[in-house]
Design a protein around this nucleic acid. Structure first.
Lengths: 167, 167
DNA sequence: AATAACTTTCAATTATTTTTGAAACTTTAA
DNA sequence: TTAAAGTTTCAAAAATAATTGAAAGTTATT
């Protein structure tokens, strides 16, 4: 396998993985492309490499910047904007986790809290419902708190110890 | 808010969350419904409650059973099949994680390994590519190993200690 | 072995999401 | 201040994914 083929395979795979996880294909592909580009790329470069339209590139670059995992760069003497990806993978993981927590988990938690707070003096069915949704609330809250803790966690000694134990 | 409204809100929210994470809406809704049902439900019950077709119910129940998070039950005297959800949340989380690992992460890892193994004696661009994809391979492998370890992890003492530290 | 009860399959339809492309907008340089 | 270079927006089109429903397939009962 030579470079061009490997690069394309990587971009396609990353795109497919993204769409299985609720991130749109182009967004994941742009990110993949920027990850393996030693130099920052212009919108033109990206459109050309991925064969996508200007609008598509613009919208997905905006989304990636909103997620905080792609940055704009200005080159002196150049008028256009260049883009580059967050390449520190720990940083990347934390940002993605935080963003998804904020957008998806936090709102779901609110609903779980609400629905698990209904008056339970009624039927057995209601009791079971409240029981289950309360458990779910606790569980999701715990999982979500772990995300919040990861940033600090990966820097302290016991964290590193545990990482080691987990291989 | 009374029971019926709460139940509906829960099912809708869980369905929406599912589709943001690459699980189809109906599949997540059926699971949600079974989670809060004290009794196991027939396909008929599920169709009626979620207003979906027989085919849809059948296919998504099959998928949930493939994931190992919904089980068939037979009631004596009844000819039809009843369904019930895994209600132990730790068990649920582990099964979902394992399933997604098997279906999505493992194949992606294979690709990462392949593309990061190309001949690096060529251009600087190639060197950078191999460097980045190798890092990614190590990172994803580590994350995936953590999933494999969670089952045992949650049962042993240091695991519980760390859980406590993480609040 | 025929029939009734129930489940699965899958081509066609419907719904949802993504992408395009051209117009509107913004910024910079002359 | 104008025109060129570049970017964003968004309605319409295309692509993708989910759903239906009826026919085919199974299994249990008489």
């Amino acid at each position: 396998m030579e470079f061009k083929e490997a690069k394309n395979k990587f971009i396609q795979t990353w795109g497919a993985l993204g769409s299985q996880w609720g991130i749109n294909k182009t967004m994941a592909q742009i990110h993949a492309l920027l990850m393996v580009s030693p130099e920052s790329l212009s919108m033109e470069d990206i459109m050309e490499e991925l064969l996508i339209s200007r609008g598509n590139a613009s919208m997905n670059l905006r989304a990636l910047m909103d997620w905080g995992i792609v940055y704009k760069e200005y080159k002196s003497g150049e008028r256009k904007e260049f883009f580059t990806a967050e390449k520190d993978l720990d940083e990347l993981a934390v940002k993605i986790a935080q963003e998804r927590s904020k957008r998806e988990i936090k709102p779901a938690l609110k609903v779980l809290k609400d629905v698990s707070s209904i008056d339970t003096t009624k039927s057995a069915e209601t009791k079971h419902f409240v029981e289950q949704t309360s458990k779910l609330y606790d569980f999701v809250l715990k999982a979500d708190n772990m995300i919040d803790k990861v940033t600090e966690f990966k820097d302290n000694w016991i964290g590193r110890l545990v990482m080691k134990i987990m291989k």
